[in-house]
Amino acid sequence: MVLPPVAVVAVFIGFPVGAAIAYTLGRAGGPNSTVALLAQRQHIVHHGVTTAAYREVLGNPHVRADLWATVWVTLVTIVVVVLLSWAIGLYLRLSDTRISRIVSALSVIPLFIPVVIASYAILTFYASQGFIKTLAYHLGWHSFPTLGYTLTAVAIGEIWVNVPFGVLMMSSGLNSVPNALIEAARDSGASLPRTVRSVLLPMNVIPTVIVATFTGIYVLGSFTVPYLTGPSAPNLMGVSMANFFSAFNQPQQAEVMAMIVFVLAVGIGTIYVWANVRASKRASITS
C-alpha cells in the first residue's frame, strides 16, 4: 500500500536531491553530465568527493552577507508573524463584535492576492515616491527613510504573505479551547492576561510552533517577495541562487547554496517534529 507514494517521492524528489548532492560534492557524471557540460567555475573530481564548491561559496563574502540577510529576515518575520497571529487570534477568540468579525475577514484577504501583485503593491507603497514617504513629507518629516528595495521591505512583504496562515492557525487553535476553561480561570481569580498566560498559551504551543516553523521555511525558500522588493545585494538566498544559476551560469554554486538553505530548513523542521512528538507524548498522558 505504501509503495506507490514512496516510489513517487523516490523518483521525483529523492533522485534529483541525490543527484544535486553528488554535483555539489564534485561528481559531474550521470544525471549531472548535461548541466556540467555548460556550467562555469565547476569543482569536479572523478574519484571520491570534494568540498571545494562549499569552501568557495562559504568563502564568498557576498554569499555570507546574503546568508545573514536571510537569517535576519527569517527571524524577524517569524517573530512578527507569531506575535501578530497571536494578537489577532486572541482578539478574535475573546471578542465577538461586528468589528472582530470584520477583522477576521480582513486578516485572510492576503491569501487571495497573488504574491507578485502584493509585492509590487508593497514596493510602491514604501518606494521613494511612494505613499508612506509622500505622507511623511507632507507631515514635515522630510528625512523619512525609503523602505522600498531594502531588507525591511522584504520583511514587511514576508510578514504580509504569512500573517493570514498564522491567523487561521492560531484562531483554530484558540477556538478549540472551550469557554469553560477560560471562565474557570477567571472564576479562580485570574485576570485576562493571566488567563492567556496560564491557559491559552500552554494549550496552544503546537499551533504556535506550526506557525513559526512553516513561516520560517517559507521565508527561507521565498523568491518573489525578496526579488521584487529587496535590494540588489545583500538579498535573500533565493534571489542569490537564481542569480548564480542563470545570470552567472554557476549551477554548482547555486546548488551548494540550496544545500545550505536546506540544512537551515532541516533545523527548523527538527523543532517542528520535536514539538509534535512532545505533544503526542503529553496527549497520551492528558487524554
Partner: peptide, 29 residues
C-alpha cells in the same frame, strides 16, 4: 468581574485544565 467575586463555580464539563495536574488545577487560585 468574575475574578473579584466571592463565588466559585463548578462547571458542567468540569473545565479542568488538561495541561495541569490535579495539584496544579486545585492550587491555581
Amino acid at each position: 468581574p468574575p475574578e473579584k467575586r466571592p463565588t466559585a463555580m463548578v462547571f458542567q464539563n468540569y473545565a479542568l485544565w488538561p495541561h495541569m495536574t490535579v495539584f496544579k488545577n486545585v492550587s491555581f487560585g
